[in-house]
């Protein structure tokens, strides 16, 4: 498997989309996080581990800063396996706990209206969040 193009600095965490792993772009300064595509990496723990770690330290900084404008997570997933679902749940749990401590958090879950699995996952995850605001959006049809 080719290694994903990755870039990490104080400001950004970027992992290019591969055949089996999603695009991941965390703009820490702009407080905008994006995860898009398919996720069934060979080793989900190895893929998501470093991501969860940087998110954790970023969120602990935000909990001190208490920004007034929200942290925004956007997800546009097409498929993920069960180990990736676990990692996504970890991300939501971290965001929920930051939100409980006063960091404004918005989650935006975009799904293809014809994809019943991704719609159902969005609905399920939304029920797990209380302090973080969860928004479900239908993706517009792509012009063919």
């Amino acid at each position: 498997m080719p290694t994903a193009f990755a870039y990490e600095s104080m400001d950004t965490l970027f992992l290019q989309r591969t055949e089996r792993s999603p695009l991941l772009e965390f703009d820490f300064v702009g407080r905008r996080l994006r995860i898009e595509g398919e996720s069934y990496p060979e080793d989900a723990a190895a893929f998501f581990g470093p991501v969860l770690k940087s998110l954790e330290s970023y969120l602990s900084e935000l909990s001190v800063q208490r920004p007034s404008s929200p942290l925004r997570l956007e997800l546009r997933m097409a498929y993920f396996n069960s180990s990736s679902a676990k990692a996504l749940m970890n991300i939501f749990q971290m965001l929920e706990s930051a939100a409980r401590q006063g960091v404004p958090v918005e989650v935006h879950w975009y799904y293809d209206p014809e994809d019943e699995t991704m719609q159902e996952f969005g609905e399920d995850f939304s029920e797990d969040l209380e302090y973080a605001r969860f928004n479900l959006h239908e993706l517009e049809a792509q012009p063919s």
Binding site: A44, N81, S82, S83, A85, K86, M89, Q93, D128
Partner: peptide, 22 residues
């Protein structure tokens, strides 16, 4: 499935239980 997803990972399981539920 949702219960298992919220639980911390089982030691040494590498995720099979949730895979079977999936």
């Amino acid at each position: 499935y949702r219960e298992k997803l919220r639980e911390p990972a089982e030691e040494g399981s590498r995720g099979a239980s949730i895979g079977l539920i999936e």
